[in-house]
């Protein structure tokens, strides 16, 4: 369960996220859409503890991210938009490292590492140093490291960057399965088709504010007013006002 209450982030006089409130129940696959610079990554960075909110609250599994960061962070796995890793570690070592940070016991961690390696089909190259990986390989290892401690919530920023079609399929199937198992998934993406395919509910953020929030079923009703696809709805909602 993820809750954002009146979340605001300001950088000087610039407001990047303005009074955003959302609630994602357990097992929901939530899509977070928006144009470049709308505030998606800033919202996610606040949810994961990388940024401190200027105002508002983030509750993950009943824990406040700012005031109970250790408890809150134990309950989620995070996949950033840029899958940076330690260049000199191998993919397998990186997954072990992440499992250790989540305080996993060694025997359980070993078992879990092998599972995620199998799940994401990483075995053939996982023992090479990550500095030799492609963007897609890094992304897959980051997924594995986010899944390794079996989190109750998954927060993803642009999941498909650099993934080949087969990897993308594996990732989508895994996420769907986790969602059905009761894991809340908060996913930011630019790929509207993927949001339509996977998400139970979608929010659109533009210029720091939520401008659309509804279920996929209701979205289909909205779509009828346009030309029947999500892209048109998105473009209409996020278009720049005409000014002379």
């Amino acid at each position: 369960m993820i809750e954002l209450k009146h979340l605001t982030k300001k950088f000087g006089s610039f407001t990047a996220v303005d009074d955003v409130s959302l609630s994602i129940p357990a097992g929901e696959f939530f899509g977070f859409l928006g144009p470049n610079g709308a505030g998606k990554t800033t919202t996610i960075k606040m949810m994961t503890g990388l940024f401190t909110p200027t105002d508002g609250q983030i509750i993950i599994n009943g824990f406040d991210v700012v005031h109970q960061p250790m408890e809150a962070k134990s309950t989620f796995g995070y996949i950033p938009d840029h899958p940076y890793m330690y260049d000199k570690l191998t993919g397998r070592e990186f997954i072990y490292y992440m499992g250790g940070l989540y305080r996993m016991e060694k025997e359980k961690l070993k078992e879990s590492v092998e599972q995620v390696i199998d799940l994401l089909e990483l075995a053939s190259w996982i023992d090479k140093k990550t500095e030799d990986y492609s963007q897609g390989m890094r992304q897959r290892v980051t997924f594995a490291s986010a899944f390794v401690h079996n989190p109750k919530n998954i927060i993803i920023d642009e999941p498909m960057v650099g993934l080949d079609p087969r990897s993308a399929r594996i990732v989508k199937d895994t996420l769907k399965r986790r969602s059905k198992e009761g894991v809340s998934i908060f996913m930011s993406t630019h790929i509207l088709e993927m949001a339509e395919e996977l998400c139970d509910r979608i929010a659109i953020i533009n210029k720091a504010k939520i401008i659309f929030l509804d279920t996929k079923e209701n979205l289909n009703v909205h779509k009828v007013h346009y030309d029947g696809n999500l892209e048109s709805v998105f473009l209409e909602l996020t278009k720049e006002p005409y000014s002379e």
Partner: peptide, 26 residues
């Protein structure tokens, strides 16, 4: 230098258990 690195033999292998708590160890 691109080669597979085995973790089994080394004292500092991530697979090996140590007397440190997991976070300190990793």
């Amino acid at each position: 230098s691109v080669k597979k690195l085995t973790m089994k033999s080394s004292f500092f292998s991530f697979r090996k258990k140590s007397f440190f708590v997991p976070q300190t160890e990793v």
